[in-house]
Every structure is written in C-alpha cells, then in structure tokens.
Nucleic acid binder design. Structure first.
Lengths: 150, 150
DNA sequence: TTATTTTGTTTGTACATACAAATTAGTTGA
DNA sequence: TCAACTAATTTGTATGTACAAACAAAATAA
C-alpha cells in the first residue's frame, strides 16, 4: 500500500502553512495592524514615518535612492512624497531630471516622535514573540528579500 | 565621553533593517511579485487560487471559516467570493445567516492547475533561497503570525 | 548638431485589503 | 411574544501598492 489513506485532495490546509507567499502576507497583515496602532499618535502611517526618517538622515536624498532603500517602486514613492509635501513635512527640489527631497522644519520636529513610535512597535512585538525569534526572523527576512529582489 | 561619536541622527538606515514591520512588508512585495508570475497561467491572482483550493477541499465551507483560515477579514473575503462567483468558479448557498461556498464544475477542474502553479512558485523560491532557509523562514512566519493574531 | 537611447519621475488605472457602519438572521431573557 | 442582543455578511469608503504608459531631461551616437 504505497498510497496513503487520505484519498481526498487536500482535505486539510497544510498547503497554506507551507507556502512562503501565504505565510509572508499573513504576517504582513498582522504586523501592519500592530504598526498602525503604534504610529497612531504620529498622525502618519508607518511607511511614511520611515520615509521621513530617511529624509531627515540624508537631506537632499533623491527619490530614486529613497525608492531603493524602501524597496518600493518609483511610482509609489511619488505618491508618498506627494502626500508628505501636502502635509508640509518634506519638500522637493527639482534638479534636472532628478528630484531631491528635504525635510521641512515641521518634518524635522517630528523625528523624535517617529523614533518613539518605532520603539514602541518593537517593544510590542518583542513582548509577544520574544527578542530571540524577533531578531532571527527579521534577519532572515532581510536576507531573503535581498536575494529575491535580484 | 558617554556619547558615541556619531552625532548625526541615523545617517545610516539600520533602523529599517531592524524593523519587523518593514522587513516583512519588503519580503511580502518581493514574494508577491514572484507568486503573481507563477500564477499568471491560471488567470487568477495567487490569493484566489488558495481560496478555491480550500473550497474544493471542503465544499460547503462557510465564509467565516474561510476568512479565518486565510487570515483575512470577512469583508475582504466577501469581495473575493464575489469575484470568483462572477467567474463561475464557486457558488454561494445561503443558509440562514451564514453563507456556504461550493466549487462549480469549472472550479474543480482548475484544481490541478492551481496546485501546479503553487509547486512552480515553491520551486522558484527554493532555488533562490535554498530549501533550508525557505522552510525555516516559513515555519517562523507561521508561528509568529499565530502569536500576533491573538 | 541632431537623432536615439537611457534614466528619473509622474499619471492613469487597477486591485488587495481594512475599518466602520448597515443589514440580516438567529438567540435569549423578560 | 417580543425586545434586546449577538453573530455572519455586505457595503461604503479609504489607502497602500503595482504596472504600464507618458513625459522630461541627460547622455550618447551619428
């Protein structure tokens, strides 16, 4: 009897838990919910917070560089900068065909608040997952992303 | 001198690589791109493929159960089933206040194609990441999701 | 110098997804 | 029996994100 007893095609749902696509997106939804909460006080979605921090850290950084560091497409980055510009948190300076992004005074002032939110977020998930797993997972994620993005 | 030399606030971008929110979403974008390719032949986005497979595996499964197994909200699930219903791949049967979902003949026939696409996807990412890392990562992701979803 | 190609950005459009509110249908307690 | 509650689903609306096409500026080739 080579055939296992279970005739029915995938009566259970192991194929979900085995799929990196599914499991990654599942975690993405969970951690995004958590991040939204942690950043609620900043008035900004988490992704925007990280963008501003990059701009504060490197005033005049180009949009191309930003989209690379954030691993999002240039078109998405355009929309992000649009929104932050209408909130007067960053401003663009066009230089030929490239666009350089600078923080405004208001943007710079937001820096500490953003770092705090990040810290809270990290505390929250480390409390649930443990520092061990959190760190290991984060490291694996970065390494995998780098490989897959090629 | 308690203060480290580096005065400038986050000149580098380590804070990105250290953040589980960022790294998870980064991988999510990369693997979703890959999954879209692998499922291109099916005419369906990957998420819909998994939904149909659950329905084939448990005909009459309720929407509530589906949304739990897929870890998506009920409202999202409603839209998914809407779309699959207009494509005549599944059909709803209302039973009181719950909705049961059944595969159509056409939906059942799609099963093998979907499993193939899944297999291709897995082969593709295992080729890049290695089976080792893939498995370990997938396991960590599932375990973390379970904990964070509580 | 002019024509071609490349590069960075933006715009149009589409989709997955969520939350909050509305709806509908059982359930329970007075 | 009916009012209040709870649970499953749907609808309205908003947002992050991508891809493809358009556009604009720079670089290169002729």
């Amino acid at each position: 009897m080579t055939q296992p007893m279970n005739q029915k095609p995938e009566k259970d749902e192991a194929f979900l838990q085995d799929c990196l696509y599914f499991t990654t997106n599942r975690l993405s939804r969970a951690i995004t919910r958590m991040a939204d909460e942690a950043f609620a006080t900043t008035g900004l979605a988490p992704a925007y917070g990280y963008l501003i921090r990059l701009v504060i850290g490197s005033p005049g950084i180009t949009q191309k560089e930003l989209s690379e560091k954030l691993s999002i497409t240039p078109s998405t980055l355009t929309r992000f900068v649009d929104k932050l510009e209408t909130k007067h948190l960053v401003e663009r300076k066009v230089h030929g065909k490239t666009v350089m992004v600078y923080p405004t005074e208001k943007g710079i002032e937001l820096g500490p608040t953003l770092r705090q939110a990040s810290k809270r977020l990290k505390q929250n998930y480390e409390e649930i997952l443990g520092k061990e797993l959190s760190d290991q997972l984060t490291e694996y994620l970065t390494s995998s992303s780098k490989q897959l993005e090629k």
